[in-house]
Design a protein around this nucleic acid. Structure first.
Lengths: 308, 308
DNA sequence: ATGTGGATTTTTAGATTTAAAAAAGCAATA
DNA sequence: TATTGCTTTTTTAAATCTAAAAATCCACAT
């Protein structure tokens, strides 16, 4: 069932709306409304709804549009498994991993990458553009690309945390800082949900994503976009490191609790306290070594088929 | 005299080596050596030397290569004027300016831009890629691009300075901070040279460039690359704002002096003092309003020919 | 009046080709 | 033996074309 990338994405988002309960059984999905919400035109939305009707999540009524068909049950589970919400840029991930484990040299031509990974020119271009946006690759003068050693070591992890320990608490003390109840409530719900769920069963990406999101949403309240952008960027770098490692789930519960404490302090208007709590929270992650286990230097070369 | 972009760049760099005195009159320029230094192959270096020989800066001896021909004088001046070291991405600048002055909508298709500015597809692509790297444009889902409101106002200027006031002094207190005499000497020379020169006559871009470079080089010494990257990124954003404005040259002298003071403190090992001095230095720029004059809201619409 | 369904138009990604630019190779020379 | 000058090979940017995808439009049903 080949269908456009965008329609796929939107299908996943609609599925999320249904499973999260925002759309109840029998409810009418208005095409234009959804299109506006996702910032696209009606075409891909319609395509997505067609797909979901095919999978049995929605029901199409002649000339009246699509409606939510069933209560979340087996079908929702099945649909969810198709969704793969985080697995997007696989080629990118592969390149990043090969670079972090020294399986590719620091300087390569696009052609080399094209052959090595069996990609087309535009695919290689996408991957490199992304790597360059994320700050670990740059075009050489002349032909070829250079990969930067940023974030290649556990040391990078500490550096990122020290940076965060500086900007995140300070963000709360910015003159234009303003509480945003919506953000606080949203985050509180997420954190409570995680504590409710069996953490062992949550996928690692979900854990990392939620964790990063918490901090990024909070720093937004500083109303200084440069704090936010900077955090988003180091977090991207961090994710590159952490995807490669095992999350220490024993620390996750503690983390969620600390997140909730910070939210409480903020809500009570005790901003300075919250700022300190944030600093302690980040410092904790730093001092107890990292919350992840560094594995690669040992397992890196287990399967080296791509090496020339 | 059309010639490749890279050769142009290298010609400028070689010119700089000569004018800065690193290469003396009569000295032999070894091709491979220069190529290695610039991280390119010999081809563009040779092309650059050919150009410079044509301009009379170098002299070619049969089968022996190129040599520096004359003492810096009228010729160097002339060569320098050709160089236009900063005027690179004009299309980019134009787009940025039009966005900052609200002459283009927040959401556009590539096609629209292509028609509006008379650019080819790849040119539009380059410009957008750069804008996206620099953080103020992003691809929409589906077709089209969205420009972000970051850095559109004088307020952004203050936000950037508050961010810098946080990270730059803190960088000096990083545990891995290490003095780099080479950087210090280099920067001292630059600052002294600026004080020596008639500041009124230096082009504004040079002023801004040197100023930004000073801070970026210093923050490198923290040996935490995330501090450096973050500063580089907000500085790019800042440059976007400042290109559009008149530099207040009366403040430049004071700035250079403060830069020199910071260098002195660092060299004497008084890092904490230096950190405070840096904070004061940045705070000064912030409190005296900005070192530039905001002009656009008034002059912006003087010539609006491109508006549809 | 709002929203659907489908047709039409616009926009863009991807493949292909061409020419320019850069890198690599090699004989000749100081 | 290192370096130049020139040649050959490789790499990439740019232009063109084609098909897919998204946006827009319009008649019609609710």
């Amino acid at each position: 069932m080949r269908s456009s990338q965008l329609a796929q994405t939107i299908a996943n988002e609609i599925t999320l709306l249904v499973t999260s309960g925002e759309l109840g059984v029998g409810e009418h999905l208005k095409t234009q409304q959804l299109a506006d919400r996702f910032g696209v035109s009606r075409s891909p939305v319609r395509e997505a709804m067609d797909m979901l009707a095919g999978q049995g999540l929605l029901e199409q009524k002649e000339n009246r549009g699509f409606f939510v068909k069933e209560a979340p049950g087996a079908i929702v589970e099945r649909v969810r498994e198709d969704a793969e919400p985080f697995e997007v840029a696989n080629d990118y991930q592969r390149l990043a991993e090969d670079w972090l484990t020294d399986r590719i040299p620091a300087e390569v031509t696009e052609q080399t990458l094209r052959e090595r990974y069996g990609l087309t020119k535009s695919q290689v271009n996408d991957v490199l553009m992304r790597a360059s946006r994320e700050g670990w690759a740059e075009r050489k003068q002349g032909y070829g690309w250079r990969f930067l050693p940023v974030a290649k070591t556990p040391q990078a992890f500490e550096q990122i945390y020290r940076f965060r320990m500086l900007i995140e608490p300070a963000a709360m003390l910015e003159p234009e800082f303003a509480l945003d109840r919506k953000i606080i409530e949203e985050q509180r719900r997420t954190q409570l949900r995680m504590l409710d769920t069996d953490i062992e069963r949550l996928p690692a990406e979900r854990l990392l994503h939620n964790g990063a999101l918490f901090h990024e949403e909070l720093i937004k309240m500083s109303n200084n976009p440069f704090f936010h952008i900077s955090l988003v960027r180091v977090n991207r770098m961090r994710r590159l490191l952490e995807y490669r490692s095992r999350v220490d789930r024993s620390r996750t519960v503690r983390q969620c609790q600390e997140h909730l404490e910070i939210l409480d302090l903020l809500e009570r208007g005790e901003v300075v306290e919250a700022s300190y709590a944030m600093r302690r929270h980040l410092g904790g992650a730093l001092s107890k070594k990292s919350p992840v286990t560094w594995s690669w230097s040992h397992q890196a070369h287990e399967k080296d088929g791509l090496e020339k």
